[in-house]
């Protein structure tokens, strides 16, 4: 049998309960007030971005129509019935996807090398001066905040159509993103080896080479691989602004209503992205286990 609950006499309980209710009500009021402000912001946002629910519901069918439509060939057959017809441009598309991966690769490599050179100046424990630290951090911030497609648009005008502006745009964005991550890795190192190297006469660069780099290299490589995965996705849309790769073919197929081409190219892109994600993840696990084994 459960023991009877201990209860305060009602006269002592009443003020406590009152306080509890008041505290609860205050919290409710704060939450409701916040929600009201938030809903107001949302309504304004909906008004500004011209949201028309009736247009959506009127056209929602069209969305699914479209998704369905891209899986049918022009003569009305289901695309998978005739793979040769569906993937008629396979050779060209694969070449373009190869280009896309190469754009991502080269952009990642250039950006990562730049980030490697810059990260020691951008980390609080190894920077030579406060001014240089501040400046380097702002430069990195600028490079990663401006979307890479904006860089690509500008570079297309400067360097001409083709993959070169795409590579450079990705390189700059990667420089900004990896520079920050690399600097954070460097800030977390053990400083004793650096002290050891410096105390036996090493210069700043010798100390970095022999005391810092061995500590950070596997982490750097792992971050660079992660960035490469992201950049493959980014490179796939570079063609939208004329900066090379498969994006050019995709946007043409969408704009000119080559329905089955859209699905074929999309499937190729998704497949490639998945393959690269898998491969890069394996490599990264290997790198990290190498690190753990040391």
């Amino acid at each position: 049998m459960p023991a009877p609950l201990l209860r305060l006499p009602d006269t002592a309980l009443a003020p406590l309960m009152g306080q509890y209710d008041a505290a609860l009500a205050a919290r409710r009021r704060a939450t409701l007030g916040g929600l009201a402000v938030f809903l107001l912001v949302l309504l304004v946002a909906a008004f500004v971005s011209e949201v028309h629910p009736e247009r959506l519901f009127g056209n929602a069918g069209k969305f699914f129509d479209y998704i369905g439509r891209i899986f049918y060939l022009d003569d009305g057959r289901f695309a998978a019935r005739d793979m040769g017809e569906w993937f008629w441009g396979l050779k060209r598309w694969l070449l373009k996807i190869g280009d896309t991966v190469l754009i991502a690769y080269l952009g990642t490599l250039i950006g990562a090398l730049g980030a490697f050179a810059a990260c020691f100046a951008a980390s609080a424990n190894l920077a030579t001066s406060k001014g240089a630290l501040f400046l380097m951090r702002r430069v990195l911030e600028f490079c990663r905040t401006v979307p890479e497609l904006v860089f690509a648009l500008i570079f297309v005008v400067a360097f001409g159509l083709g993959p070169v502006p795409g590579v450079l745009a990705i390189a700059i964005h990667t420089f900004g993103a990896l520079g920050k991550l690399f600097a954070e890795v460097v800030e977390n190192i053990d400083l004793k080896p650096v002290e050891g190297a410096t105390s036996s006469g090493a210069s700043r660069w010798q100390a970095i080479r022999y005391a810092v780099v061995p500590q950070v290299l596997s982490n750097f490589a792992s971050y660079a691989l992660l960035r490469f995965e992201i950049n493959v996705r980014g490179a796939a849309v570079m063609g939208f602004v004329g900066a090379g790769g498969i994006g050019q073919d995709l946007i043409e197929a969408v704009r000119k209503f080559y329905y089955s081409d859209v699905s074929a190219i999309l499937l190729l892109i998704i497949g490639t992205v998945m393959l690269i994600d898998l491969g890069a993840e394996r490599l990264r696990h290997r790198l990290l286990s190498m690190e753990a084994a040391r």
């Binding site: 959506l56 056209n59 069209k62 849309v237 892109i269 992205v273």
Partner: peptide, 24 residues
């Protein structure tokens, strides 16, 4: 698996040009 920009292209086909396609 599909980039935001590609979704934007598809939604433009459905609801027309404009910010609503961006929201979607």
């Amino acid at each position: 698996g599909v980039d935001t920009l590609i979704w934007a292209l598809i939604w433009i086909n459905v609801v027309g040009l404009g910010p609503f396609a961006g929201v979607l």
